[in-house]
Design a protein around this nucleic acid. Structure first.
Lengths: 342, 342
DNA sequence: CTGTTAGCGCTTTCAC
DNA sequence: GTGAAAGCGCTAACAG
């Protein structure tokens, strides 16, 4: 019974069959389906019902081959296991779908070589547009994209001169803002707890730079390999930090999940947050700030980036010229009711 | 400068150009690229270098049109904003990519009509396989799939007789297990706190059925519309529950995030967990169980479902006959160090 | 408003 | 090991 065989039984009806059924020429059938305004109402109806009767499913491979338009967008992200990216991708896919574009999704696992391999494969499907995450790519990736001659949007990072268009925020500035915030709250020795990915690294650079500019002591940095946001890392991270230095009075975490984990472990240690330890997150999770007495967070709106990115890409795919780079910024959020260390 | 025009400048080289460059016929060039074993080593090399020089990018629209194979898989999930699904999709995409299939992702927002619309559009791309989430679909979805005559895998839910193949677990059983667990821990009046989606509803049914079977009082149920897992809902949910009934001594939450939120709010209320209130989650997040003294959780391995689903689909796309339905089950996890209500 | 012709770029099938 | 012919299913470009 459930041993289906996929035999391609009776050949699926083609446009020709449909046209015959409706008593028109193939091209008229095509127009009735895709450009109804070019066809008499009565014809349209006949074709339509013929399509329904015969169960006609258009073949967009053939269509795309002739029209040089696929309504396909190729998008790649490092992971969808992080809510920042999954929000972004979700919004992107949804916005593109509303404009009748479908999205093929690639996952790079933070690896530009994977990205390159994926892109090379994808380009053979002749997508109408490409979405990349970040602005670090291999030379071949750039070359391929350049000669493919299609719109490209780079999401997540803001840089003034992207390949084509970009929507995001400056990682460096986010890091600087975090440092300034912690200092303003009265913490003297903020440290960094972060995952080993290039964007977290750039935020850390901003953080360090801010410290240097203020002639503050250089913040200690604890880096661990796992990319996936792990609440469970909280204990580990905090332990590693204390092993490395015992005078840190605040931590800037590379994700909200990590911040949450740190918070939980701080509680377990009997450490008072935010009085004895400041905890700062990064991301879009309400939790650290709204539910639990974390100190503060750098808030990013991933969905907004995805939406704007889709918008820019669509405009370009239609031949428009939207702004090549948008800085959507970030927000430093502190919970009003939280007593800061004074 | 960055006013790119997408002019399709010099026409991209086709297989014909490539063949001329290498001094062979188009078909030989094609074979050299895709079926090297059919071609002399020297020819292969010449074609290869011609490809590199000319920057040849194959056109798989044309290829797919003739070969009736696209190496494209169409997959749809309700959302990727929930780690259960994003893990599943991530594993699916990765496993398919390893077998050289690309994935186009749809997002249904828990709506079978969206799913239908998406599927109808996708089928015109002639995917080699389709992945759906769950087993509830419209009639037209089923009809389309049936006449498309391609392998289909339904993920997430286990049912004995799927459309084609299915990998998942029984929502009902998960709910029953949750109830039994809470009872075994000594809770007398467990309640349900859940989002309004059909799977959470089925788990609730299992929960209620278990209660009925044990002749326990019927558990109170609080349902709220938001689908996205929200820690912030914890307060709301707990308040609603207390308004509805004040004797519940445990809650089965429809997601780990919700459980976490409830936990946080319970702490805020000075409620002792698990002594005064049992909290049970559902999902894959370590947090509720490992970081915080939540009572327990029903643990699902989303990535595993994605991986197995990919495996089954690949086997079927290659013409094989894997098991039509796999129950991957779930695990009830209780934290050993947690004192249970006695 | 409708039809004819031609061809998109590739691979299948058969022949050598 | 290589090639010639044919055609996948559709739409662009023109003509009526």
């Amino acid at each position: 019974m459930s041993t289906r065989s996929f035999s391609r039984g009776a050949a699926a009806p083609t446009l020709k069959d449909l046209a015959r059924l409706a008593g028109v020429s193939p091209i008229t059938a095509s127009r009735a389906l895709h450009r109804p305004e070019l066809v008499a109402e009565s014809t349209r109806l006949r074709v339509q019902s013929a399509a329904e009767q015969s169960g006609y499913v258009p073949n967009s491979l053939a269509g795309g081959l002739t029209s040089r338009q696929t309504r396909l967008v190729a998008a790649i992200v490092p992971t969808i296991g992080h809510s920042l990216f999954s929000d972004m991708v979700g919004a992107l896919i949804t916005a593109l779908a509303e404009a009748r574009y479908e999205t093929t999704l690639g996952i790079s696992s933070y690896d530009v070589e994977h990205e390159e391999t994926w892109l090379a494969a994808m380009l053979s499907r002749r997508p109408d547009g490409v979405v990349l995450t970040g602005t670090e790519h291999t030379m071949r990736t750039r070359r391929l994209l350049l000669s493919a001659d299609i719109p490209v949007v780079e999401l997540w990072d803001y840089i003034p001169h992207p390949m084509d268009a970009a929507v995001g925020f400056s990682q460096e500035e986010a890091g600087r803002a975090a440092f300034h915030h912690l200092r303003a709250c009265g913490y003297k020795r903020p440290a960094i707890l972060r995952a080993d990915d290039s964007r977290a690294q750039r935020r850390a650079q901003g953080f360090l730079r801010a410290a240097a500019e203020l002639q503050a002591p250089e913040p200690v940095q604890v880096v661990f390999p796992e990319q996936r946001p792990q609440l469970g890392r909280g204990r580990e991270a905090l332990t590693a930090l204390r092993a490395k230095c015992d005078h840190a009075d605040a931590v800037f975490c590379s994700s909200d999940a990590l911040a949450q984990g740190v918070l939980a472990h701080a509680h377990a240690l009997g450490l008072n947050v935010p009085q004895q330890l400041g905890v700062m997150g990064f991301g879009d999770q309400a939790l650290a700030v709204d539910c639990v007495p974390a100190l503060s967070t750098v808030r990013i709106d991933g969905a907004n980036i995805g939406r704007l990115g889709a918008q820019d890409l669509i405009a370009r795919m239609r031949g428009g010229q939207p702004e090549p780079a948008r800085d959507v910024g970030f927000a430093v959020i502190a919970r009003a009711s939280t007593a800061l260390k004074s």
